[in-house]
Amino acid sequence: MSDVTAPRGRPARTAAIVAGVILALLVVLLATRDPATERRSTSRLIGQPAPGIEGEVLLGEPFDIGATDRWVVVNFFASWCVPCKVEHPELVKFSQEHTETGDARVVSVVYSDDADDVRRFFGERGGDWTVFDSDQGRTALDWGVAKVPESYLVAPTGVVVERFVSGVTQAQLNAAIEAYTRAAAAQAGVSETSGAGS
């Protein structure tokens, strides 16, 4: 009977097979993709040389991130942001600890905020490190900052090694520095290239 109702072969079956194959490929494609957010965080600066920070210095002494042999924590913040207020004491503690040891320092970059508010923020909450203005948002743009607070850990080699979103603690920063130091030591050591300890 099919040769009567379907004089030109079996178009529905052919179409179903073609559509089925294409749709199966689509399902496979969707099933094998990572979540977009993961792709986003891995696609950023990690492993890349740190971009420069060219804004005007609002507080503290001038600082060139390309010419230092210390670990640098680049912190993006705004005085109106609540989690920034929460994380600030942690940064103060971290900064104090490492000013003594001399192996790491903090710099902050303002994100969409008023210079006066920023000065008041540091006046009330402490912190004596360098604060750059936002350079019309260019610095945040170069670093790919989406929301504050966001902090980046830059190794003494000038490479960005870690990104912290929505707040960071002294302990987290120290742990990251220690982990990378150990990994670097292991790599420098004779044969243990696989000891990316963490």
Partner: peptide, 16 residues
């Protein structure tokens, strides 16, 4: 997709 494409492929030509 499996059910509908399969059904259309199986039945489609007879029902045209």
């Amino acid at each position: 997709l499996l059910v509908t494409v399969g059904l259309v492929g199986w039945r489609g030509d007879r029902l045209r």
